[in-house]
Write a protein that binds this DNA or RNA. Structure first.
Length: 422
RNA sequence: GGUGAGAUGGAUGAGUGGCUGAAAUCAGCAGUUUGCUAAACUGCCGUACGGGUCAAACUGUACCGAGGGUUCGAAUCCCUCUCUCACCGCCA
């Protein structure tokens, strides 16, 4: 969530920026500022009363010790009177704090100045593109047909055992998946990211920390017996490693990478976009995450974009990088770059990575701070990105590299896969 | 699943009703000493929200796993919950 101080000090600027994100409930900003002023007044009053009670309690102790029982009793009635005022003040303070928090939860992160205005994905801005779109033979087929032809993935079997969107990868399909994970993790750790293999379920505190709750509750699988959520991305467990942590400046930046399956209910999405590997309820992904000083997050974002770009280039896939417009960005993000690869048989761009700077929005929720050289505490900035999401990479690799007699793998994968082609 | 023990500041760990926001030790920071390093010595060293200030100093309140309760007063007593550890059972 945004810091109330920022809302207060830059009210008009914040409102303007929020409009870039198509956030229209600007009255919430004024409301929360007014509530916070109330909160301060209430707290000052309450603190003063509590101070008199504390003072009186000490007096009573002394009076009792001195044997002056009657005066002690008088002081006690004074305390009792003060307490009558304290109770309602406490109640309204709690109420104010809750209202403030619930409003702050409803206000999305402000976009950075580079973020283009716009409402739909069509208004995203292409930053650059690379690679060459292959020319396929006339009989080229989409990946779901290739998956069947070479016995790589069985969608129907997944339907039977679990439900749609939970495919089985089999034989060379499973091995290719495993090779990709291994390659991605190696690529990331070589760039200085520390590998984590996180829990695949998280508790509610963690889901709040990274912002999945309360706004995206319906997107996650929930295990009511234990009140756990299946993770929709490794970002959730890995970023929460530093929830409620006060770091030393010298410890930053923290660079982490993690493989995990991702579980998404994808409620309300049907139709043509969900065919094959394009949209699944369970898929695999390797994520990169950084926790950095605020002054460095802009540079680090670009560094992460370049990192992902190199990874895609090494797979020899045609790609483009988009800077998302305000309307297409996530709630907690300040700026997001999407990576898409061109799936030649489907003749479609497929999103395979999304790299975002959350600035202090997640950090404020998670209370992740660092102590600077002067001993002052500041919120960190958090960033994350996919490096990479597996299914659409696999779909594109299969489609773009198909020949009549097989599917050639890019060089970097051959040693991992143990063969040059499928 | 059963039984028992526990949860205190960055860490270890004292503290059973007022003198405790919290001993001591370690770690950390600053300085003195020192040919360098090490050692020794001195000082500082929790967080949040307020007041105050240009900024400090200073100052109020809250916080000893979480939430309630008893009391003039709670880290300390009572209740509930969560988590951790140990042993047993089960098990990849």
């Amino acid at each position: 969530m945004l810091q109330i101080q920022v809302l207060k000090n830059n009210t008009e600027q914040v409102k303007q920026l929020l409009q870039v994100k198509n956030f229209t409930q600007l009255h919430l900003v004024d409301e929360v500022i007014a509530l916070d002023d109330d909160r301060k007044k209430t707290q000052t009053q309450l603190d003063e009363l509590l101070a008199t009670v504390n003072q009186a309690s000490k007096e009573i102790g002394k009076l009792m010790a001195a044997g002056q029982k009657q005066q002690a009793e008088e002081a006690k009635t004074q305390v009792a009177n003060a307490k009558l005022q304290i109770e309602p003040l406490k109640a309204s303070l709690t109420e104010l704090e809750q209202s403030i928090e619930s409003i702050l939860f409803q206000i999305p992160n402000t976009p950075t100045p580079e973020v283009p205005t716009g409402k739909t994905p069509e208004e995203n801005v292409e930053v650059r593109a690379g690679g060459v779109k292959p020319t396929l033979a006339a009989d080229a087929v989409p990946h779901w047909d290739l998956a069947k032809k070479y016995n790589l993935i069985d969608f129907e079997l997944g339907n039977k055992v679990t439900g749609s969107g939970f495919p089985f990868y089999i034989g060379k399909g499973a091995k290719l998946q495993r090779s990709l994970i291994q390659y991605f993790l190696d690529f990331n750790t070589q760039a200085g990211y520390l590998e984590y293999l996180p829990p695949f379920m998280v508790n509610t505190a963690s889901a709040f920390g990274t912002g999945q709750l309360p706004d995206k509750e319906g997107q996650m699988y929930h295990m009511p017996a234990d009140d756990f959520y299946m993770i929709p991305t490794a970002e959730v467990p890995v970023t929460n490693v530093y929830r409620d942590v006060l770091l030393k400046e010298a410890e930053l930046p923290k660079k982490m990478t993690a493989y995990s399956p991702c579980f998404r209910r994808e409620a309300g999405s049907y139709g043509k976009d969900v065919r094959g590997l394009n949209r699944l309820h369970q898929f695999e992904k390797v994520e990169i995450i950084q926790i950095v000083k605020p002054s460095e997050s802009n540079t680090v974002l670009l560094e992460m974009v370049e990192h992902v770009e190199k990874l895609i280039q090494s797979l020899e896939l045609p790609y483009r990088i988009l800077r998302l417009c305000g309307g297409d960005m996530g709630f907690a993000s300040a700026i997001t770059y999407d990576f898409e690869v061109y799936s030649a048989a489907q003749q479609k761009w497929l999103e395979v990575s999304s790299v975002s700077n959350f600035e202090s929005y997640q950090a404020n929720r998670m209370k992740c701070r660092y102590k600077d050289a002067d001993g002052k505490n500041h919120l960190v900035h958090t960033l994350n990105g996919s490096s990479l999401a597996l299914p659409r990479i696999m779909a594109t690799l299969l489609e773009n590299n198909q020949h009549t007699d097989g599917i050639t793998l890019p060089k970097v994968l051959q040693s991992y896969f143990g063969a040059e082609q499928i």
